[in-house]
Amino acid sequence: MRNLIQFFTKNSYVFIFLFLLTISFVLLVKNNNYQNSKVLNSSNFLIGNLYLTVDNIYDYFELKEVNKKLAAQNAHLQSTNIRSFEKIFGTTVIIEDTSYSQKYIYLSAKAINSTTNNRENYITLDKGALNGIKAGMGVVSPDGVVGTVKNVSQNFCSVMSVLHEKNAVSAKIKKSGYIGSIVWKLGDYRIAQLKDIPNHVKLQIGDTIITSGYSMVYPKGILIGRVKEFDLPEGENFFNIKVEFSVDYKKLSHVYIIKSLMKEEQQKLEALNVIEK
């Protein structure tokens, strides 16, 4: 017994080391699976606020760029407004407004921190549970898709960016309508891969890639990027396609969080298929 105690006191340094290393590995594994540790990530109150302050300073330098973008978007919205349409057939045209029901609600938010250089990149936004944000909502910017909300605190939320190895976006080639998925791998933050496009599809460089709307996270038809290059490896059934993102993730500032009003209904319906099996 004495020998045992002696052994422990003699090697206490190594044991403290192993103890601390074990704690960090437990944190690592737990964190990678579920991001369970909501206390210590950047939607945490203290660091979230710190990022907000720094971002407020950065904002001044970007005002010009942001204004230009918002103005462009305003112009686009104005042109789709009902007032910018002229009735062609006098009073006989009926606007069937009851045949439409709202499916998505957009909430504006601001990115206060973002990374692009990790394997798993996250963006912190300045809207949180108090603004009705919930995990799983989609995030887009005026230029295209950004990511999915992952963790939410009172005032902030952190978004799993498209630049995340485990975040695949269901995508569609606008011209031909074929569905694939956009996957990003560490390296160039502007380039992603479009997978699962069969080899008989006609492709061209510059083809527009949009969201398919299958995933319930993003509405249909939101821009993702354009085909930059593609090739067909010998004996493969699927193309190797490189897509250039339309969003510059390093310049992200104003974004929209999308609340899907029919998501639950669709999920409930699709869950029935699983139960019936």
Binding site: L27, N31, N41
Partner: peptide, 12 residues
């Protein structure tokens, strides 16, 4: 780690 959301990585 709490800055970069990579809990455990820098710690270990």
């Amino acid at each position: 780690d709490s800055f970069t959301n990579t809990l455990g990585m820098h710690t270990s």
